[in-house]
Amino acid sequence: MFPTPIERRSVALQRLYKTALPIAMVMWLLPLIAVALTSIRSAGDITAGNYWGWPTSFNLIQNYSDIFTNTPLGSYMWNSVRVTVPTVIGALALSCMSGFALAVYKFKGDMLVFFMFVAGNFVPFQILMVPVRDLTLQMGLYNSVTGLALFHIAFQTGFCTLFMRNFIRSLPVELIEAARVEGVKEWRIFWFIILPLMRPAIAALAVLVFTFIWNDYFWATVLTQGAESQPVTAGLYSLNGQWVAAWHLVSAGSIVAALPPVAIFFLLQKHFIAGLTLGAVK
C-alpha cells in the first residue's frame, strides 16, 4: 500500500494523523455545515446578522415546513422525480440493447456507430441548445416534463452505451457461442443470458444517471419555465430570486434539493463508485 500504512509509523505520527483527519473533514465540508446550521435559524437571526453565533431559537421544523407550504418547492421536487425516473429507465433500456449489439456482433461500421455515441457524449450542450429547444417547441413539448425527459434519455444513451458495451465485452464470449450452438435465438440470448449478467452495470448506471439528471440545471432552464414543469434545480434558482436575503429558507431549500442524490449515494455507494471509476483501473 502507498503511502506507508500509518500503523507502521511512529505513535506520534499516528496520533497526528488521527487528529488531522476529522479537522480536514470539517474544513472540507465547512460550506455545507454552515448551510445546514443556517437552515435551522430563525428569520430574526438572519436580519440581525447572527450567522455564526449560537442560534436564538432552533427553527428546524418551522423552516422546513415553511418552504413546502409557502413555496412550490414540493411541486419542483415532484417534477424532478417525473423527469429523472423515466430518464433512468429509458436510457438504460436503450443502452442495454445498443451496448449488446456493439459488444457481441461484428458488422460494417460498428466502430463508427460506437464512436458516434462516445463523441456525442462529450459535445458541449450549447451546440445542441437552439435546435433542441426549437424541436421541443415544434413537438408541442416545450415547458413539459416529457420534453425534458425525452432529451435526457437521448443524451444519456451515449454515455450508457459506452459503459454497457465495455461491460458486456468483459463477459465470457463462450456463453454466447454455446447458446448459439444450442440454437438459441439471438433475442433470447440477450434476454435470458446477457441481461441477467448485466445487473451490476445496470445498478451502477441507474445510480449515476439518477444523480446526473437530478442535478441537471442547464436543460431545465432551456426547456422548462414555471412551477408546473420546472425541476428542483431550476426551481431553487428562481426561489433564490424571490427570497432575497432569506438565507435560512434558501439553505433549507438547498438541503432538501440535495437530499435525494445524497441518499442514493449513501445507500448504493458501491455501485455509484463502480460506475464513476470505470476505466480508472486497468
Binding site: S98, Y105, V113, G120, L128, P131
Partner: peptide
Amino acid sequence: SLAPVLFLAPAVLFFLFYVIFPIFQS
C-alpha cells in the same frame, strides 16, 4: 446480421435525432 440492426435502431435513432443532427443544425 439483422439482430444488431434491431438492437441498435432505437438508441441510434434517438441519438441522431436529439444529439447528432442538432450539431449540424446549429
